[in-house]
Design a protein around this nucleic acid. Structure first.
Length: 1002
RNA sequence: GCCGGUGUGGCGAAAUGGCAGACGCACAGGACUUAAAAUCCUGGGACCUUAAAACGUCGUGCGGGUUCGAGUCCCGCCACCGGCACCA
């Protein structure tokens, strides 16, 4: 491969144009108020050269965004450029269409991956991060993306995280007002009567800064402070959190998967710890409802809905027998209250100690201990048999006064609802299992609509039975009636519950944003926290020689090692935790719109122009990235954005209007042959239950013989040993034996990672870009195939040869072999344009070919169907290769279509066309997008398929203008058709104009 | 278990309800070449028949339905991928 002749000199063309674009800052986007430099192609195109780009004269904006990468040490992966190429193509297309395109790039450089890499290499995170950014920058620039690099940012830049800290202060200094249903400055918080001061009572807004001298008593002051702190959007609380002892830090719910850390795959345990938390639950309803206003895929919206987990139901109070205490439960089925035959508390429920009877104390305590020793994974395994213990206490069912036993069981979770349930075994699967195991009564209260269905364990809607005043009501009506009844009697009320938990926002790590907070001690000796003033931002992290986390079972933030930094002269101490990875990515898209602003996180004018409505849907116009951020980044960023919106800092309620997830790129196809234990080959066609098994030497496939059931083992074999046959892929030297062919996720351990650098050396950036788009629909998962790169590379070669004179290229290649490589770029001038290209009018056939291509490419770009757009250009080239003469206007227009996809080769040929014909070469990047002329696509005669009884039999040629009678006659005249109509009567003729004819015979 | 998505040649894939398989890969044959690479040309869903073809039959995961006509719409299954999961 590497020895073969280059299709075209991409190795010279690509660097040439990349530096040309960089020099003239070709892709710089202009903000309102900026001056467009004289000679900038954007200014030339829009008549703004040398002018101040006032909002009124700027063209419409288009903000197209990539999810910025973590600059990991591993470098760019082929998955990154997939999304980046798609957005780049669209950015270039929209620019050609005349829009002011914002297309930025930056680095998500704080956080665990960057830090872990630093720990591994023993260098300071700042050093490794900078080196990694440099490498990512080199790789991304070598792909020729049209980013506005003047807006580049890294979340680790001091000038950036200063504003991350500033936004945190806004969260800290705000509360969610349920009356106005939005976040407001903490100063508007109303205190309960017993905490009110004279100021509050006369209705004045308390202007006192938290540190100003107390006017009332110290106790009142600290009680007010405690109340205020409990209402902040960023609050400090002790709560059960995920602790990862390996990493020495706490993690958010979203960062824990199946009881292990998402990063590093370490075990995590639940433990109660005092931490910083963001009140994202206050926005649960808005985060859910506003999904309906944005253009995301159904699956992605569903994932967010799932994570938010809204469920409507009722809270019901149960009196405990012979006690003052009550148990409140949450249920989505209040209509089944008559069927509640027992109650269950979670083992950690606070009432358990109080209500347990003496005779049950030992059993209850030992059950609680048993549960405490279990991992969350073991606890929540739904397949596990139910366990539980009776507390000895009873509750009164409020609807029928019956005494029902109170149990504790680990199938009731502390963290959801009230941590207690009423059990209705007849109509809840879990309660039913539990009741069967412990012989608890099962009472039917719902009759299935289908009388053949068993009512036991029936969980769907039906009709109420054995339910007193609810009898005969369908489930929805029964729900409404019982809810009203409960409310009236003061026994309960309708409620909505969410699975979403508040966002655990502190980490015990070094490589993150420090909190702009300090801790003080009040007169009573209690610790309290206070925000630093905005003027003290940025809060820089201290210098540390040892920045590694502290593994173990208690949080010991590395920042605590910097004693001088941590202890302030006034006796207060700094908050030692840092913010999580996700903080920086929550608002980077806003910073891009005004990246150099030193007085605000983003200027109003910039936000209004790039993010606001433009008379249509608001926010980032298109955001492309992987699904892995479906619930983390995308939920957090929406939350921050909504807070900033409520507080009046941004103009739109949602950040990302349209979002597309690119699909995963899998590794090259892997072939596996199977043998039995004694080494006999078995055809893959005869094997069932093929699955992957981990072995010390890596994963391998295993399966079982379809008929005998004998176990078979897979061995990876190289692609050279197999060949395709009609039945499947078989062994070259033994075609009876079919092999298994499948693709796997790229991973270091599998050794199937494709490095973009290698592909670029071999085929160039344009071919690489084109291949990633040609593989299939952007959203789909698809396997990498290096042969496929060669296919599009050949296409670019054909396009090149369509334009250049072959003899001159041979001369160029020979000159290259005898010239110093540093001078090769100059040799490009040896290559001449093909003599067949002339400035003449195109033939109707040529125009038709061109305009069909314009139409298809334009429509496919609008629909993000890059693969079919590329195939349309291939069709054009295949056709144009047969032309004797090549009209200049046709050739130029084709280059415009090609430019978004393969910008380097297109620019090069564009420049050559212009200079050869003595034309002024305007930048191809800003040349107006061609429009197709429908008139040129009209045919005088068309082919129509003829069917007989719905079966295709022949095609006929008819004039476009032919009427139905003429078409029918032509169809009947066809000999091939007559074979099937002979001797039969034609009962009906269906003619779809320009489409087909169908003759129905009997 | 629940939710979302996908299922078409040897492979990646195309197809506003109207000629299934565009385009590309791989493969086979040919031209050029001392030879190879590169390039150019040609071929191809399966089956039946055949020297080759024509004709014919079948064909978009499976079973039904709607329709003159279904890969596409509807109903019921199956498989795979992704997410959630003892969430009351």
């Amino acid at each position: 491969m590497s020895s073969s002749r280059r299709q075209y000199p991409f190795h010279l063309i690509e660097p040439k144009w990349q530096s040309a674009w960089e020099q003239q800052q070709a892709f710089r986007a202009f903000n309102p108020g900026e001056t467009v430099p004289v000679g900038h192609p954007f200014g030339i195109r829009h008549g703004l050269s040398g002018k101040v780009a006032d909002r009124k004269i700027l063209p419409e904006k288009y903000y197209i965004l990539d999810m910025f990468p973590y600059p990991s040490g591993a470098g760019l992966h082929v998955g990154h450029p997939e999304g980046y190429t798609a957005t780049d193509i669209l950015a270039r297309y929209r620019r050609a269409c005349g829009l002011n395109v914002l297309h930025p790039m930056g680095w998500d450089s704080f956080g665990l991956p960057a830090e872990q890499y630093a720990v591994k290499t023993g260098q300071h995170p700042r050093v490794t991060t900078e080196a990694n950014i440099a490498n990512f920058t080199r790789q991304i620039k070598s792909l020729g993306f049209s980013y506005d690099w003047s807006r580049e940012l890294a979340t680790t830049d001091v000038e950036y995280f200063k504003w991350t800290q500033w936004i945190f202060l806004k969260l800290y200094n705000s509360w969610f007002n349920p009356e106005t249903n939005k976040a407001e400055p903490i100063e508007t918080l109303k205190y309960p009567e017993n905490l009110q001061t004279v100021d509050d009572q006369v209705g004045r807004v308390a202007p006192r800064a938290p540190s100003s001298p107390a006017t009332g008593s110290d106790e009142l002051d600290s009680a007010r402070r405690a109340y205020r702190d409990s209402k902040r959007l960023a609050y400090n609380a002790e709560l059960p959190v995920w602790w990862c002892s390996e990493m020495g830090t706490v993690l958010a719910n979203e960062e824990v998967i199946d009881g292990r850390s998402e990063v590093g795959n370490f075990p995590v345990v639940r433990k109660p710890l005092r931490q910083w938390v963001l009140r994202i639950t206050a926005y649960a309803e808005k985060l859910l409802a506003d999904l309906d206003t944005i253009d995301w895929s159904d699956s992605l919206k569903e994932m967010q809905r799932n994570w938010i987990g809204r469920s409507e139901g009722a809270e019901v109070k149960f009196q405990i027998s012979n006690s003052e205490s009550e148990i409140t439960v949450f249920t989505t089925r209040p209509d089944t209250l008559f069927g509640a035959t027992y109650m269950v508390l979670s083992p950690e429920h606070t009432l358990v100690q109080t209500i347990t009877t003496d005779s049950q104390k030992i059993a209850v305590r030992s059950y609680q201990n048993e549960i405490a020793g279990k991992s969350d994974r073991e606890r929540t395994d739904a397949n596990k048999a139910k366990t539980g213990v009776f507390t000895g206490a009873y509750a009164i069912n409020p609807v029928n006064g019956e005494k029902i036993p109170i149990w504790i069981a680990d199938y009731v979770l502390t963290g959801y609802g009230t941590g207690a349930i009423m059990a209705v075994p007849a109509h809840d699967t879990r309660d039913f299992e539990f009741a069967k195991k412990f012989n608890l009564p099962v009472v039917q209260v719902v009759q299935p609509t289908d009388p053949k269905k068993d009512w036991q364990g029936y969980t769907d809607d039906g009709t109420a039975v054995n339910s007193g005043f609810l009898n005969d009501l369908p489930t929805p009506e029964a729900k409404a009636k019982i809810s009203a009844w409960l409310e009236e009697k003061g026994l309960g009320k309708k409620t909505i519950n969410y699975k979403l938990r508040d966002w655990l926002f502190s980490r015990q790590r070094y490589w993150g944003e420090p909190f702009p907070l300090i801790w003080k001690t009040d007169a009573g000796g209690d610790l309290y926290h206070e925000a630093l003033p905005e003027s003290s931002l940025p809060v820089l992290p201290p210098h540390l020689d040892d920045f590694r986390p502290t593994p173990g079972d208690k949080p010991q933030p590395p920042l605590g090692r910097a004693k001088e930094w941590a202890n302030l002269t006034d006796g207060s101490t700094r908050e030692l935790n840092t913010m999580p990875q996700w903080a920086g990515s929550c608002w980077y898209y806003l910073r891009y719109t005004d990246a150099k602003n030193s007085t605000a996180f983003v200027g109003k004018e910039a936000d209004n122009y790039w993010m606001a409505s433009n008379g249509k849907a608001a926010g980032v116009d298109l955001y492309v990235g992987g699904t892995e951020h479906a619930v983390l980044h995308l939920l957090y960023a929406r939350f921050w954005h909504k807070v900033l919106f409520d507080l009046g800092y941004v103009a739109t309620p949602e950040p990302f209007y349209k979002l597309v997830n690119q699909g995963l790129i899998l590794g090259e196809t892997e072939y596996t042959q199977f043998t039995t234990e004694d080494g006999n080959l078995v055809s893959a066609a005869l094997i069932k239950d093929i699955s992957e098994e981990a072995t010390p030497s890596g994963p391998r496939l295993i399966g079982a013989h379809k008929t005998t059931g004998v176990k078979v083992f897979g061995q990876r074999i190289s692609a050279e040993l197999v060949e395709p046959k009609s039945q499947g892929t078989v062994l070259r030297n033994n075609p009876q034996i079919e092999v298994d062919a499948r693709s796997q996720k790229m991973s270091k351990s599998r050794g199937n990672v494709v490095n973009p650098d290698d592909v670029l050396v071999e085929y160039g950036a344009d071919a690489f870009r084109l291949y990633e788009m040609f593989m299939g629909p952007l959203q789909d998962t698809k396997p990498w195939n290096t042969k496929g790169v060669e296919g599009v590379y050949r296409f670019l070669g054909r396009a090149w040869r369509l334009f250049v004179d072959e003899k001159s290229e041979t001369a160029f290649e020979q000159a290259e072999t005898t010239t110093d490589p540093s001078k090769h770029a100059e040799l490009l001038d040896l290559i001449l344009l093909d003599g067949g290209i002339t400035d003449m009018d195109a033939t109707p056939a040529q125009l038709k070919t061109l305009h069909a291509c314009i139409k298809k490419v334009t429509e496919d770009l609008e629909g993000m169907r890059f693969n079919t757009a590329i195939s349309a250009m291939m069709v054009f080239i295949n056709e144009a290769m047969t032309w004797q003469t090549k009209p200049l206007p046709v050739m130029k227009t084709f280059l415009q279509l090609l430019a978004p996809f393969a910008p380097h080769i297109a620019e090069e040929l564009w420049a050559r066309l212009h200079s050869t014909f003595g034309l002024q070469a305007t930048s191809l990047a800003y040349a107006p997008w061609p429009k197709y002329d429908p008139a040129l696509l009209v045919e005088s005669e068309i082919e129509m398929p003829v069917q007989v009884n719905g079966k295709f039999r022949d095609t006929i040629k008819v004039a476009v203008a032919a009427d139905n009678a003429a078409i029918e006659a032509a169809a009947k005249a066809s000999e091939k058709v007559q074979v099937f109509t002979a001797g039969k009567t034609i009962k009906k003729v269906i003619i779809v104009p320009k489409r087909m004819v169908n003759l129905i015979v009997a």
